[in-house]
Design a protein around this nucleic acid. Sequence first.
DNA 1: AACAGCCAGTGGTCAGACCAGTTCAGAGGC
DNA 2: GCCTCTGAACTGGTCTGACCACTGGCTGTT
Lengths: 283, 283
Amino acid sequence: MAMRDAAVDERDGRARLFHQVVVDLCRLIRDGQFRVGARLPAERELAERLGVSRPSLREALRALEVSGIVESRHGGGTYVRDAFDPGFISPLALALEATGDATGDLWEVRIVFEPPIAARAAMRAGADDLTRLEALVEQMFELAPDLARNDHILAVDREFHAAIARASGNSVAVRVVQLINQVLFDSRRHFTTSLERRLQACARHREMFDAIRGRDPVAARDAMLLHLHEVEDYILGGLDGKHRRGLERGDAVADARHLAAEQWVQASGSGMFAGEAKEGKIS
Amino acid sequence: MAMRDAAVDERDGRARLFHQVVVDLCRLIRDGQFRVGARLPAERELAERLGVSRPSLREALRALEVSGIVESRHGGGTYVRDAFDPGFISPLALALEATGDATGDLWEVRIVFEPPIAARAAMRAGADDLTRLEALVEQMFELAPDLARNDHILAVDREFHAAIARASGNSVAVRVVQLINQVLFDSRRHFTTSLERRLQACARHREMFDAIRGRDPVAARDAMLLHLHEVEDYILGGLDGKHRRGLERGDAVADARHLAAEQWVQASGSGMFAGEAKEGKIS
DNA sequence: AACAGCCAGTGGTCAGACCAGTTCAGAGGC
DNA sequence: GCCTCTGAACTGGTCTGACCACTGGCTGTT
C-alpha cells in the first residue's frame, strides 16, 4: 500500500551471474559474433568461454529462450532466433497463466495495438511481405472448408497477423503481436468455428491484404479493427457458461471498450493517415 | 527463407521439465495457492514438492522472473509479484540488447500504445489511481529544478506512465508499458535535459492528469501523444552524432510515423471516445 | 545408390556441496 | 525496560561432475 516514496528504485548494481551472462550473450549476438540463425557453441564450451558454470549459463539461456532470442533443441544445439520470425515460445505469455484470466485485457491490447500496426504495414510493406501475406490468405481460403483442421487454420490465421506486424517493419511490434496472439489463439484451440464464420474471417483477411497492397493505411486499419471485433463477438456469443468465466469481469469493461472502438471506426474517415493514403476513401 | 509451408508448427507435446514446472507454478499462483506478494517455499523444499531437482526448478524460476511474475532476493526468498506493480526487471527488454538498437521501433510502439491507454485510464481510473497520479505529478514538479537528480526524475516520470497504464485497469497494458519504458528510460539515464524542457514535461503530465481526473479520454489521449512527440523531438534534436546512430535507420520511418501521428491528433476531435467524454472538446 | 545401424556430440536432468546474503531471536550494554 | 549488537539458521547463488536422451552424420552393408 501507501506510496513508499513513489519511484526511486536504486537499481542495485550487483547483478546476478546469469544476468551478466545474458547481457554478454546479447552483446555477442548484437555485435555479429553469433549471427541470426547460427548455432551457438555447445553449452559446455560456451560456459567455459564465458567463465561460468553450465547451470549459470543454462539459466541465462532459459531467460533468452523465454524472451524469444534463442532456441534450444534437445541434442541439436542452441540457435539464435530471427527477431522477425514468428513462432517463438512464451515471454510474458506465461503471465496469463499466473495472472488468472487476462483474456479480456489481452483482447483490449490486441484491439488497441494491431489496427495501427496494420496501417503501418500498408505504408511500408515490401515485396516479400506482400508475397507472404497473399500466400497466407490463399492458404486460409483453402483450409476453411475443412472443419476438422481447426488447429491448422488457427496457425495460419495467427501467422497472417504476425506477417502483418512483420510488414510494419517494427521488430518490437512483431514480438508484441506474437506474444499476445500466442495466448489468445491457444485459448481457442478447442473452439471450433462455423464454416460461415471462417469464410467471413477469410474475406476480412483478404480485405486487409488488399488494403496493404494498395498502400491504404486507413482501410488496412479499419479492416483489422472490424475483423477483431467480429472475432471477439463470435467468441463471446458462442461461449457456454463454463468457458465464459474468464470474461465475466470484463463485461463492463468490454462495453466501454466496445463503444470506444465503434466510434473509432466511425471516426476513421476523417483524415488519420490520409496523407499517406493517396486517395482518401472517405467512407 | 522461402515459406516452409507457412505456419504449421506442430507444438511438440514433449515439454521440457522446466517448462512443465513453469506451468505448474503458474497454476498454483493462479489458484491462490501462492498469493500476490507472498513468499514461495524455499527452493529446496519447492523442488522436492514438485518432484524436480533444484537446477530444474531454478530454470523455471528464472523464466518466471524474466517474465515479471516472481522476484528472487538473495538470501531473502522468492516472492510473487503483483501484475499491476511497476518496476519489474526484464522480459523482452533483453530483446533490445540483442536485436541491436530497437530504439526507433520501441518509440513507435510507445506512441501507438500509450495514448489509447491514457484514454482508457480517463474512463476507468479509480480514486486511488487519481491519488497516485497526482502525487507523482507534484513530485515531478518538485524535482524538476534539481538538475543533478536526473535519474530520480526519470524514475518518477516512468512511474507516472506506469501509473496511467495501471489506471487503465488493464494488467497486460501495464506490463507492456513497463517493458517498453524500461528500455527507453534506461537509454536516457545519461542524457540530461534542460530546465525548460523539464517544466514542459511536467506541464504535460499535469495536463494528462487533469484530463484523466476530468474523465476526458480524448484530452488524455491527445496530451499523451503530444507529450511523447515532444520528448522524442527533444531527444532527436539534442543527440550528437555518436549517440544518434541507433536512430539513423529510423529517419524515414520517423517521418512517416510523425506524419501519421500528427494527423491522428488532428482527427482526434471527430468523435472517438466522444460517448464517454461528456462535453466533446472539438478542437 | 540406398538403406540401416552406430556413435560422437549436444542438450536435459540430477545429486550434493559450498558460498553469500538475509533474517530474527537472544545476548549484551545503556 | 529499551536499544544495539551478534550469530546461527535459513535462503538464494554458484559450482562440480555425473548420467540420460535425443540428433545427426558417418560407416558399413546390401
